[in-house]
């Protein structure tokens, strides 16, 4: 169990299917890596099942119902019953640190891109979502430029770890940053720190270069 689980209310949003894709992906990755949060989500899903069981419904058996069933049965001719998948089918050939829910989002040809000479980034494209969703990679001892957020920022650690003013975060840990916080994460010793970061609104850099770089951030160039 991780030291920094996602808060209960976010796990409820996730289990209810209410989160936009970016934050939902962050929570999905955290849940895949954290048995404690997995257990909470399993319970919440069971609450969803219980609510379906409680639905008072009219009897099935009218003409429309029978016709609907016939149409669906006809469609099954083209739908095979799939064999149970194996875990190995869910692993990415290059990015072996990627938990299963991330793999469908890693399209062929995606690769790290150096940003400001300081860290590497892969920008993920989630159609229709207004969040900025990125994988970041930081070498041991390197830091991200000090910044604050205009909105929420969700971080899940996928490899290595980092430390900032709020604590130390390892694989599976989940951090929620809010608009009023400034922070300056530094990667821990050892293998590079890889994290998924989901930002509601563009980040505002607060260091000496911020004045020059913020316009580029807001245009999505860096």
């Amino acid at each position: 169990m991780s030291r920094h689980p996602a808060p209960d209310e976010l796990l409820l949003d996730y289990a209810a299917g209410a989160l936009p894709d970016g934050p939902a992906l962050a929570v999905a990755l955290h849940v895949a890596l954290d048995p404690g949060s997995q257990r909470t989500v399993d319970r919440l899903n069971a609450v969803g099942g219980a609510l379906i069981d409680r639905e008072p419904v009219p009897d099935f058996g009218g003409e429309n119902d029978a016709a609907a069933l016939e149409r669906v049965l006809a469609r099954l001719d083209d739908v095979p019953v799939e064999p149970h998948p194996r875990a190995a089918d869910r692993r990415h050939s290059t990015f072996d640190w990627a938990p299963a829910p991330l793999v469908p989002h890693l399209r062929p040809g995606m690769d790290w891109r150096r940003v400001m000479g300081k860290f590497d980034e892969i920008r993920l494209d989630l159609p229709g979502d207004f969040h900025r969703v990125s994988l970041l990679r930081l070498e041991a001892g390197r830091g991200l430029p000090e910044h604050r957020h205009a909105g929420y920022e969700y971080t899940v650690v996928l490899q290595g770890g980092y430390t900032d003013e709020t604590g130390n975060y390892g694989v599976g840990d989940f951090a929620v940053g809010t608009g009023d916080q400034r922070h300056e994460p530094i990667a821990d010793p050892g293998e590079p720190c890889i994290a998924l970061i989901v930002v509601e609104n563009p980040i505002v850099l607060t260091g000496p270069w911020g004045r020059w770089l913020n316009p580029l951030v807001s245009r999505g160039w860096i």
């Binding site: 999905a28 998948p85 875990a87 089918d89 829910p101 991330l102 793999v103 469908p104 989002h105």
Partner: peptide, 8 residues
């Protein structure tokens, strides 16, 4: 991806 059907 959201609920990955758990591999065996």
């Amino acid at each position: 991806w959201l609920t990955v059907f758990a591999p065996e």
